[in-house]
């Protein structure tokens, strides 16, 4: 059974239809790269998956929980779904360690010592053990984004959602963040990533989903789909981003 299942999902902002009949399923351990022009609905789709955006029609089932059901417990769901944003959004008033332990302490009621152990482990994993006591404003963009990933991982999510997490970074900082994603991929983490890094999508992604005007316009195995697109829209999109 798939870990994430979207069935005929429609989403409107006022009169603007941003998602039109989206069907998508993601298996455990699968890495799905979502690509497309800005405004095509990629980020919105991602945000729907952890309930940050309500949908008007359709069903979204994540890890057995129907999050479109009226009584869905979104807070419970969000502990199983990690999300990392383009703008890092670290909590500026908290140290790196406190950023990572906040949800553990508040949501999980994890004892302080245990929470710190987890934080230490996660921050080490993203290569920032020496920054445990630093504040976000003392870190580079790439470091902040790695802390944001560690913060999500601390909750032990079953799936990670990445929303253009390298788009705000200086080019020389993109690599360090992508390397963290590669580590996660090697560990078998289920991931959906909205990205403009075609090379990364091609090498690390199992599957590519190309969104166009609110629909999934083309999807298939990452390498094959990116190397030989079947639709004119994907061809022209790839032409535009690769040159």
């Amino acid at each position: 059974m798939s870990l994430i299942e979207l069935k005929e999902v429609c989403k409107r902002f006022g009169n603007l239809e941003v998602l039109k009949d989206i069907d998508l399923s993601v298996d455990e351990g699968e890495i799905v790269a979502v690509i497309g022009r800005s405004g095509s609905g990629k980020s919105t789709m991602l945000r729907c998956v952890n309930g940050l955006e309500p949908v008007q029609k359709g069903r979204i089932v994540v890890d057995g929980t129907d999050i479109t059901a009226p009584k869905a417990d979104l807070n419970d769901l969000r502990q199983r779904v990690g999300m990392v944003f383009q703008s890092y959004n670290l909590f500026p008033h908290l140290s790196v360690e406190r950023n990572v332990t906040l949800a553990l302490r508040v949501v999980r009621k994890t004892p302080e010592a245990e929470a710190r152990d987890i934080a230490h482990e996660m921050v080490t994993k993203v290569g920032l053990a020496e920054k445990l006591n630093a504040y976000p404003d003392e870190l580079s963009g790439g470091q902040q984004q790695r802390v944001a990933i560690a913060r999500s991982l601390a909750m032990g999510p079953k799936v990670m959602l990445f929303d253009e997490i390298t788009s705000a970074l200086d080019p020389e900082l993109v690599g360090e963040v992508l390397r963290v994603l590669e580590t996660l991929a090697a560990e078998g983490m289920t991931m959906i990533l909205v990205t403009h890094e075609m090379n990364f999508a091609r090498t690390v992604g199992h599957r590519v989903v190309f969104m166009h005007e609110g629909r999934i316009h083309e999807e298939g195995p990452a390498r094959a789909t990116l190397d030989s697109p079947r639709t004119a829209e994907l061809t022209s999109f790839l032409d535009a981003v690769l040159h």
Partner: peptide, 8 residues
């Protein structure tokens, strides 16, 4: 949003 996404 970020804190909501963390389950708060």
């Amino acid at each position: 949003e970020t804190s909501a996404a963390l389950g708060l």
